[in-house]
């Protein structure tokens, strides 16, 4: 029962971060929400007994995608320097 509750909460969190990332007016906010979605997806893979996918998603979905997208946002905003 508790496990099913966890699954339902995780699914709700997935759907709400995804829709918030799509609907957010601020681009930076949208990207951060999308990275959070990747982390939650990584948790979902653990719940689906797929540790290989969880490892890949954590490294790629959260790490690489995050760096790429955030860098692109700062590029589009015309900032020349990070930090």
């Amino acid at each position: 029962m508790a496990e099913l509750l966890l699954d339902v909460l995780l699914v709700l969190a997935l759907l709400s971060t995804a829709s918030a990332a799509l609907l957010s007016r601020d681009l930076f906010r949208a990207v951060v929400l999308f990275i959070a979605f990747g982390l939650l997806l990584s948790l979902s893979w653990v719940r689906l007994h797929a540790p290989d996918l969880a490892l890949a998603e954590a490294a790629i979905g959260a790490g690489l995608t995050g760096v790429l997208l955030l860098d692109a946002v700062s590029h589009f905003r015309g900032r020349r320097e990070v930090e």
């Binding site: 290989d52 969880a54 490892l55 490294a59 790629i60 760096v67």
Partner: peptide, 25 residues
């Protein structure tokens, strides 16, 4: 380690490659 672990437990070339790329970044 991920590369080596892939032969008998979760891990393997894709995860190791992603970590390698992250180290490069």
């Amino acid at each position: 380690w991920l590369l080596w672990a892939g032969s008998h437990r979760p891990g393997g070339a894709f995860q190791a490659g992603a970590v390698l790329a992250a180290a490069g970044v």
